[in-house]
Computed example of a mutant assay.
Amino acid sequence: MNTPRHRPLSIGPLRAFEAVARRLSFSGAAEELFLTQSAVSRQIRALEEELGTTLFQRGTRHVALTADGQLLQSTVAPLLERLDGTVRQMRQTRGRRVVNVTTFASFASLWLIPRLEAFQRDHPDMDIRVSAHDQLVDLEDSEIDIALRYCPPRGVPPTAQRLFGEVLTPVVSPWMAGQAASGQAPPLSTAADLRHHTLAEEDDQRPSGLFLSWRRWLAERGLPDLQPRRWMYLNFTYQQVQAAVSGQAVALARLPLVAEALQRGELAEPFGETGRMSAPTVYWLMLSRQGRARAEVMEFAQWILEQAAGTRSAIGEGEPPKAAPFSGD
Rank of each mutant, 00 (worst) to 15 (best):
R91N: 14
Q205S: 13
L257F: 00
P170L: 02
F104Y: 15
H196F: 08
M232D: 06
V245M: 11
F17L: 08
V99N: 08
R215N: 10
Q263L: 14
Q92W: 10
W231L: 15
T102R: 14
L255K: 10
S27R: 15
F236P: 11
W175P: 04
G328M: 10
M176L: 06
I304F: 04
F104I: 15
S278E: 10
C151P: 06
T93Q: 14
L255P: 07
L72P: 00
F17R: 11
P157L: 00
A259T: 05
R292A: 10
A147F: 03
R22L: 11
A192S: 12
R149L: 05
S278H: 15
S182Y: 00
R7P: 14
P280E: 14
M126Q: 09
G52V: 13
V98Y: 13
H196K: 07
V76A: 09
A21E: 01
Q179R: 13
Q227C: 02
A191W: 01
M126G: 03
W214P: 06
G328I: 01
A64L: 06
V171H: 00
E269V: 01
V167F: 08
S131F: 14
D134Y: 09
L47P: 01
E220R: 15
E273M: 09
P320Q: 09
S41E: 10
A293N: 03
A30H: 05
F107Y: 11
D329C: 07
I144T: 14
D141R: 06
L287P: 15
F26R: 15
H196R: 04
R276H: 13
T103N: 07
T198L: 12
G69S: 04
L199I: 06
D203A: 12
R154P: 07
L83I: 09
E299D: 13
R230F: 10
L252W: 01
F211S: 08
K322P: 10
P157Y: 03
D329P: 02
V258M: 10
G265T: 08
T274E: 09
Q290T: 04
H197G: 00
Q57A: 11
G318F: 04
A314L: 05
F26S: 09
E266W: 04
A295G: 04
A200M: 05
Y233E: 07
G328Y: 14
A19V: 02
F26D: 06
Q73S: 12
G155I: 03
T60K: 13
L79W: 13
P325R: 07
S278K: 15
R96P: 12
S313H: 11
L110T: 05
G265M: 11
A192P: 12
G328W: 11
R58V: 12
D125V: 00
